[in-house]
């Protein structure tokens, strides 16, 4: 697979999915560059560049049901500090991406190009998450990570439901994916990571539950 694979090798649902992921990965990279440059890794830069080549425009997304939820999520994910960026992008949205990439690797609806991109995305996410955990670990003695995490991620998690509903309708049948399964992966990994960082598990689970319930 080369960096110049033709766009036509992606089926329409794949183009839609990769357009969404390109938007999210690009936003993540921009946030890292602004607030936590160490997380703007070569692998992440390379991934974003590759996605910009494969799906250079928002054409596949424009006018689709997913457009608004994606726009809302991107707006909610605009952080204003290093800590918020680490929590929102470095932990939460990287986990979301990683969960999607992981499931794409075995999805019957993912063609060779999608699987290749998913491999790149998964590897880049893994590196970034490890770095984010390391950065957050260093802050754990001086900052209230649980409070910071809850404050920063509340508006982002609140966007997941609409994203999932639209995503299931637009992409679920093609890829054989359900957003609640992706979300289960994300929550499971997040809980493990946050406990590792010393956050109170009960409070974190309640935060996630409240966000997912829309409470």
């Amino acid at each position: 697979m080369t960096a110049t694979s033709p766009l036509e090798t992606l089926a329409p649902p794949e183009r839609l999915l990769w357009t969404v992921l390109r938007r999210l990965e690009t936003l993540g990279l921009e946030q890292y560059e602004q607030f936590v440059p160490a997380l703007a890794t070569p692998a992440k830069r390379s991934l974003v560049e590759r996605l910009r080549n494969e799906v250079p425009t928002d054409e596949a997304l424009t006018g689709q049901e997913l457009e608004e939820p994606v726009r809302d999520l991107c707006a909610a994910a605009l952080s204003d500090s290093a800590l918020a960026t680490l929590c929102v992008q470095g932990l939460t949205l990287e986990r979301l991406g990683q969960a999607i990439y992981s499931r794409l690797l075995t999805s019957p609806g993912a063609g060779p190009l999608s699987r290749h991109l998913a491999e790149l995305g998964g590897a880049a996410a893994g590196q970034t998450i490890a770095l984010a955990l390391s950065e957050l670990q260093q802050r754990s003695s001086t900052e209230n990570l649980l409070a910071g995490y809850c404050d920063a991620t509340e508006p982002v998690l609140a966007c997941f439901d609409a994203l999932g509903e639209a995503g299931d309708r637009a992409l679920g049948p093609h890829f054989g994916l359900r957003f609640i399964d992706v979300l289960t992966d994300v929550a499971t990994e997040l809980i493990g990571n946050c406990v590792q960082l010393g956050m109170n598990r009960r409070k974190l689970v309640c935060h996630l539950t409240a966000a997912f319930m829309g409470a």
Binding site: D161, G164, I180, D181, L183, T184, D185, A187, T188, I191, G192, T209, F212, M213, G214
Partner: peptide, 21 residues
């Protein structure tokens, strides 16, 4: 194991949470 327990319980609650929402 912790992760397995969490995944099992969270995975079973997710559909209920979605229905509630």
């Amino acid at each position: 194991p912790s992760k397995e327990a969490t995944r099992n319980v969270v995975g079973l609650f997710m559909p209920l949470i979605r229905k509630y929402r």
